[in-house]
Amino acid sequence: MIGCDVSIDYPHLANPSFCAMQTTAPAITTYDLKLTLPLAAFFVVFFLSPLAILLYVSLHTDAAMTAHGLTQYGKFLLDPFSLGVLGRTLWVGVQVTALCLLLGLPLAWVYVRLTGGLQTVLMVVILLPLLTSVVVRTFAWIVILGRQGIVNSTLAALGVIDAPLRLLYTEGGMVVALAQVQMPLMVLPLITALSRLDPNLLDASAALGAGHWRTFRRVVLPLILPGVIAGCLLTYAASITAFITQTLVGGGQLLFMPMYIYQQASTLSNWPFAAAISIIFLAAVLAVVSLFNVLGRLSKGYAHA
């Protein structure tokens, strides 16, 4: 075997057992791949084929699905109102992700600094939203944001406002509620990234004369960037597709993509248009995700620079 002759560069590896490993290695690889077959079959049946059907449905010109054509895509892409709905949905995702990052990073930082019991308590608090149903969490926000809710009654008691503010069924209220609902998806990857950070690096940076801000920007941030990107990706994808929270806290008159799809598919039985909107939404989300991935690849360069 040609590849087994490593004694020239790495004399210490040139022993028989290593060569034996080399010859059996391909077999192990095939065995591994076979193990993923059930999962692959599962994805083909329950993910790829529905997606193909969705694409097929979207290529019909009428709701009764008698003729083929691209009119549904044209109807969406040439309509400023529909494009506005798409744009607003993607923008809401950006706002929620930014808010989650802003609030989640200090939280993850505090968690990593804590020790023992306090850390366990904080972990339970962070995970608690994941352990309750989204519907329950969202209804809590209706109570908080309502005219007689916690925010309005506190502000009124402090004399800040005379009449209750309209918080429920506004975009701002919805962004805050979504940020709370999706927060664990941001905090958990951040905690993983921060706990891998060697504290000695911070001391070294300080010893070399860098201030807190400079240490954070030049040392901490580059090293935890993969975690930041993972968190952003999860939060973003979850918040733009969060039908329940968008509907219950956003109301029936702030229209976002999930509700738009539901309206066309369910109320109007216009499956081709609903399918076309779904495909366009999927493409838009994939574009954003690829952007995040590009940032991730760039960040690796940044970290090693």
Binding site: F139, V143, R147, Q148, L168, L248, G252, Q253
Partner: peptide, 19 residues
Amino acid sequence: LGAVAANPGALATLYQQGQ
């Protein structure tokens, strides 16, 4: 108009909350 609810169930909740 104080609120446009997404469905009748959500509308009923708004009375409960005094919205």
